[in-house]
Write a protein that binds this DNA or RNA. Structure first.
Lengths: 192, 192
DNA sequence: ACCTGAACACCGTTCAAGT
DNA sequence: ACCTGAACACCGTTCAAGT
């Protein structure tokens, strides 16, 4: 009927990635899923990389959907991180790809959302960068472990979800100390 | 002359990965580097995955080399993490691979080394698991970003190394609080 | 045992040719 | 403009055949 749309393509790609991971996603497999020839897919998506960037953006956008803020800054940020790990973790191999191309995929909305929460709590500008940077590494590492880590409940005998949660609290505890410093006296912006 | 050894193969693989990354490493390219036919390489290494596991083990082993402990537990662990990120970061794509196969690559020595440091500092057993888990996610996320993150000094306008360092301190600050709890009263092992 | 060289079943990407 | 189908230059892996 109608011509192939980007939304259809991204949806089909997500379905395939959820099942067989980024490596299992094949331009041929995607075309079959869409019911078109290989060339047709390439007519809409110039390259597999571009396709994955579209998927990454789609996932991020799903996370940054508006939701009523509940709790203090830590609770709000934590909820966002858990949702992010949850959503992205469902697509094996995507986290690593998204991390390697944050600048292409990370939406300004979500970033601003996080910055606003921390700024409103009283974090200094440099602290916001530190906290968000740490969270990026942490969440990426969690989700980047591939299916074995993100999807599985238990890994190597330990509860991954609980471990992720506990580590997040560790990070927030450290951030809280830094916030106290910010709220009290100024800290020099790191000696040169 | 002598037959191909595993050490030669791993060394050649590391050289190639350092230059073109895990994805750029090809069994054919490796064979050329070794000066043998493709089949010869496969005679010693059954699969590319096995080869990468060997490389991963090699990198971890390089990190866990004995060094005199300097400073408190935080300083010691931090030094290990920085060295780990440093070494692994030099091989684009390896961090993600190693994280996805920790059980295959992570040497018992290094793990024990870390456990000993934390236990000696007074951390409870459950806290040790939490701290090491958090560190694993964090360091992996840092190194998993591929060449764009681990290799580059600056990324997206920010100093990656500084960001990594600051986040590590955040994590240690949180861990220190938990250590204080451990040293004082007991904490219930997480409500069910 | 160790190695060669060719093959097989895939990839991503391109492109003439159709409508 | 949108799509088809075949091709190109690769992969990882296998395997008969040589020494």
């Amino acid at each position: 009927m109608s011509a192939l749309s980007d939304r259809e393509i991204v949806a089909a790609a997500r379905k395939i990635i959820a099942e067989v991971g980024v490596d299992g996603l094949t331009m041929r497999l995607l075309s079959t899923e869409l019911g078109v020839a290989l060339g047709a897919t390439y007519h809409h998506v110039p390259t597999k990389h571009h396709l994955l960037v579209l998927v990454g953006r789609d996932l991020f956008h799903e996370v940054s959907l508006p939701s009523p803020p509940v709790g203090d800054w830590a609770a709000q940020v934590k909820a966002l991180m858990l949702r992010l790990a949850d959503v992205v973790g469902r697509y094996p191999g995507m986290a690593g790809y998204m991390l390697a191309h944050v600048d292409d995929t990370f939406p300004a909305e979500l970033h601003q959302q996080l910055v606003d929460i921390l700024a409103h709590a009283g974090f200094a500008e440099s602290s916001i960068a530190a906290v968000l940077g740490a969270l990026r590494f942490y969440v990426s590492g969690m989700a980047a472990g591939g299916p074995s880590l993100a999807a599985a409940e238990s890994f190597h005998g330990v509860d991954v979800r609980g471990l992720f949660d506990e580590g997040l609290d560790l990070l927030f505890a450290g951030a809280r100390l830094r916030l106290d410093d910010d709220l009290a006296g100024r800290r020099p912006p790191a000696p040169a």
